[in-house]
Design a protein around this nucleic acid. Structure first.
Length: 421
RNA sequence: GGAGAGGUGGCCGAGCGGCCGAAGGCGACGGUUUGCUAAACCGUUGUACGGGCUAAUACUCGUACCGAGGGUUCAAAUCCCUCCCUCUCCGCCA
């Protein structure tokens, strides 16, 4: 959420930012309501001032035993009028909130302007492996090795789900533990195990609601949403809190399942586990001051990259253009791992700086050394999303005889297993 | 699921119709003292919104906020209703 005062004072900047973000919102409607609200406020606050001072007079008159009936009757009318205007103000404020929550964060200066085509590769790491045979796609490997079952998943759930089995389940588990251990031991993160159901307030805090409502699974009876990412519970951990300056920066890492309806994406990437309704993810979340958030953003990216480097998987880093970034992000890098089965790059992490966009929604503040309270900056990155990392390992580490070589760093997590199959 | 207790400022905690933005304490900040630290003492210390004046987030005026929403009243932290949350006990349960 942007600061209303900032919007009022920087209308053109905000409009330009919204345009760059490729979002449609009616800023003028918001500004109109804002002006209207302030007019009414002026009026009603004068009436309230009158009411307050007169009520004190009445109290004094009563104490002295003087007559106050006439004034009291008059004030009753004033109170009635105040109630009416208050209702109008509330109505307008409500509409404003609705609009305000739909205004995206503005892109940071260094972000390239444009849509998806304007995304730029800024780094490539590792060499694409060469094979003396035709590498298979992960769905074929899964089936042959009997390590993941898509068909049976349909029976228990539906399309877009996967069942891991045997050494596949072991690999999944090993990856999770390897990632968490790396971030805790090498990168200084504190592990969190949060709930997978969160309430509407939390979902609004990080910006999933109201815009992405259709992408979320909702438990209407209880008012819960299944989290689409660990970002939601972990970021909202500190909602409505004032942190101390010396507590920052806070680094958290969390493994969670993630649930996404993927509404409207049927027919796209439906084969295999590239896009499923439930998947695991190890998420990194940071809380920082405004001064350090962009340095922390670079470090965060390095932390996520470290996982791919240790797994020795070739990847590239892309800086997302203004129109391709998520609603809440000010700047975002995507990490894409190379996968030879279909000769493609797969997004395994989005590394975003939200500045104070989420913290203003979720009300996460800190008290600086000078005693000022300010909104923290929040950042997050996947470190990493599991299914696509799983795919990349199968497709990059497959051998001619149909096995999967286990990356060195994972073997301790898999009881020393060197080959799957 | 049943019964009870409670939700007040950064924290603890008093207040139970007007003089309450709210005692007292803790913490934090500034100062005095001090070889340094500590202690002691003095002072300061909420947020949001709107207006005025501005270089100004400085100053000033007003309004709102004592879990949330509604009601009673000239006047509500204080009385009434609804909801939410926390705690304790009982039941059920992985």
């Amino acid at each position: 959420m942007l600061d209303l005062k900032f919007i009022r004072e920087n209308v053109e900047t905000v409009k330009e930012g919204i345009r760059k973000k490729n979002v449609n919102v009616d800023l003028d409607a918001l500004l109109g309501l804002d002006a209207q609200r302030r007019e009414l406020l002026k009026e009603v606050e004068q009436l309230k001032a009158l009411k307050n001072s007169t009520s004190k007079d009445v109290g004094r008159a009563k104490a002295k035993g003087e007559d106050f009936e006439a004034i009291a009757a008059q004030m009753k009318q004033v109170s009635q009028k105040i109630k009416e205007i208050d209702q109008q103000v509330e109505q307008i404020a409500d509409n404003m909130r609705g609009l305000l929550l739909r205004i995206p964060n503005l892109p940071e200066k260094s972000v390239p302007v444009g849509g998806e085509k304007a995304n730029k590769t800024i780094k490539e790491w590792g060499k694409k492996k060469t094979f003396d045979f035709k590498p298979s796609a992960h769905w074929d490997l899964c089936e042959k090795l009997d390590i993941a079952d898509f068909k049976r998943a349909v029976k228990v759930s539906g399309t877009g789900f996967v069942v891991f089995k045997g050494q596949g389940a072991l690999l999944e588990r090993a990856l999770i533990n390897f990632m968490i251990d790396t971030h805790v031991r090498d990168n200084g993160y504190t592990e969190i195990m949060p709930p997978y159901l969160s309430n509407e307030k939390a979902m609004t805090g990080t910006g999933q609601l109201p815009n992405l409502k259709d992408d979320m699974y909702c438990l209407k009876e209880d008012g819960y949403y299944l989290i689409p990412t660990g970002e939601v519970p972990v970021t909202n951990l500190y909602s409505d809190e004032i942190l101390k300056a010396d507590e920052l920066p806070i680094y958290h890492v969390a493994h969670t399942a993630c649930f996404r309806r993927e509404a409207g994406s049927y027919g796209k990437e439906t084969r295999g586990m590239k896009r499923v309704h439930q998947f695991d993810k190890v998420e990194l979340v940071k809380f920082t001051t405004a001064e350090t958030s962009y340095d922390e953003h670079e470090k965060l990216l390095n932390n996520a990259e470290m996982i791919l480097q240790k797994l020795n998987l070739p990847y590239r880093v892309r800086i997302l253009a203004s129109g391709d970034m998520s609603f809440a992000a000010a700047k975002c890098y995507d990490l894409e791992v190379y996968s030879p089965g279909n000769d493609e790059y797969l997004e395994v992490s989005s590394c975003s700086n939200f500045e104070d966009f989420q913290s203003r929604r979720a009300h996460i503040r800190y008290k600086s050394k000078e005693g000022k309270t300010a909104f923290v900056h929040t950042l997050n990155a996947s470190g990493l999303a599991l299914p696509r990392t799983f795919i990349a390992i199968l497709e990059n580490y497959q051998t001619k005889d149909g096995k999967i070589e286990v990356p060195e760093v994972l073997r301790p997590y898999m009881n020393g297993l060197a080959f799957i199959g």
